[in-house]
């Protein structure tokens, strides 16, 4: 879109009727329920409207192409606004409506200019439509981008949260795995476990896969690599909770987990305790404290 240098009617209108436009715009916003959600206060909305107009007024002096450098401060402001609204929980259409609702006050102001050439009014109206549309769309894009960033951050957090290494006893760690293991997640799992082995100086690590629905060849290989790496560091791994179906699939795939494996986490823990020289015994009835 090429900027038209003769759009001075818009610039003049904004400069002369700025205050009217602002009050009409914020009234419209209030009537359309912009404050109803309670996520934004009236004063804040008022400030946002004023800032948009303040940034728009100097920008339109040389044209109405929203991609021009003159519009950069306005674009940045709208991007910030869109991003903060995304965080506050506004829908993208609410944010876009905020910008689009500027159209009507601008139309009214432009057409109400005394002594203006009708052709000029018509052209300016079209310019305003294009400009406001471009700015509105930009808020949607920013909104979407910030949502995507949020999703990526959450994915990373889930990956870390879903691989907790817990200490069962001095020198005994457990890693209860839940969900599907892809290779990226397995790498996080592997590094977490090995780091914990060092920090807890653990001799034995139990990898419990009760919560893993399926194990394919690649996952099995990743598990084996983890076990081998732990061995190189001087720790032993026990795998527990292999479901019957997974055992069948793995044998079928020709994957042999050449490591110590136990049916349940409890069995694995008992073995681990034995290895570190501990045992669990039942407390005799008479030794129980009277209750």
């Amino acid at each position: 879109m090429i900027a038209r240098p003769q759009s001075n009617l818009l610039a003049a209108t904004l400069a002369e009727q700025g205050t009217t436009i602002l009050s009409v715009w914020s009234d419209r916003l209030k009537k359309s329920g912009a404050l109803a959600s309670g996520r934004i206060r009236e004063a804040e909305l008022q400030t946002q409207c004023r800032t948009v107009l303040d940034l728009l007024t100097p920008a339109v002096k040389d044209g109405v192409d929203a991609a021009q450098p003159a519009f950069a401060p306005l674009r940045d402001f709208l991007a910030d606004l869109s991003r903060s609204r995304a965080v506050q929980g506004f829908t993208p259409s609410e944010t876009a409506t905020f910008v689009f609702s500027l159209k009507q006050p601008l139309f009214e102001a432009v057409s109400g200019t005394k002594g203006a050439d009708p052709t000029d009014v018509m052209r300016t109206t079209w310019d305003v439509t294009q400009l406001v549309d471009a700015l509105g769309l930009q808020t949607i894009e920013t909104f979407q981008k910030s949502r995507e960033e949020t999703i990526i951050r959450q994915q990373r957090e889930i990956a870390e949260l879903s691989t907790p290494v817990v200490k069962l006893w001095d020198g005994v760690l457990a890693l209860p795995l839940i969900g599907t293991l892809d290779s990226q997640r397995t790498q996080v799992v592997m590094e977490n476990l090995l780091e914990s082995i060092v920090s807890e100086s653990a001799e034995i690590a139990i990898i419990d896969i009760t919560g893993v629905p399926t194990v394919d060849t690649l996952t099995a290989q990743h598990l084996l690599k983890t076990v081998s790496a732990a061995r190189l560091m001087g720790a032993d791994c026990i795998i527990s909770g292999i479901r019957p179906q997974i055992a069948q699939t793995m044998v079928h795939l020709g994957v042999e987990l050449n490591v110590v494996s136990k049916a349940t986490l409890a069995d694995a823990f008992a073995l681990a305790l034995k290895r570190v020289g501990r045992t669990v015994v039942a407390v005799k009835a008479r030794e129980l404290p009277a209750s």
Partner: peptide
């Protein structure tokens, strides 16, 4: 070290 062990494997 863990990173060394992973790499060796």
């Amino acid at each position: 070290r863990p990173a060394v062990a992973i790499t060796l494997v």
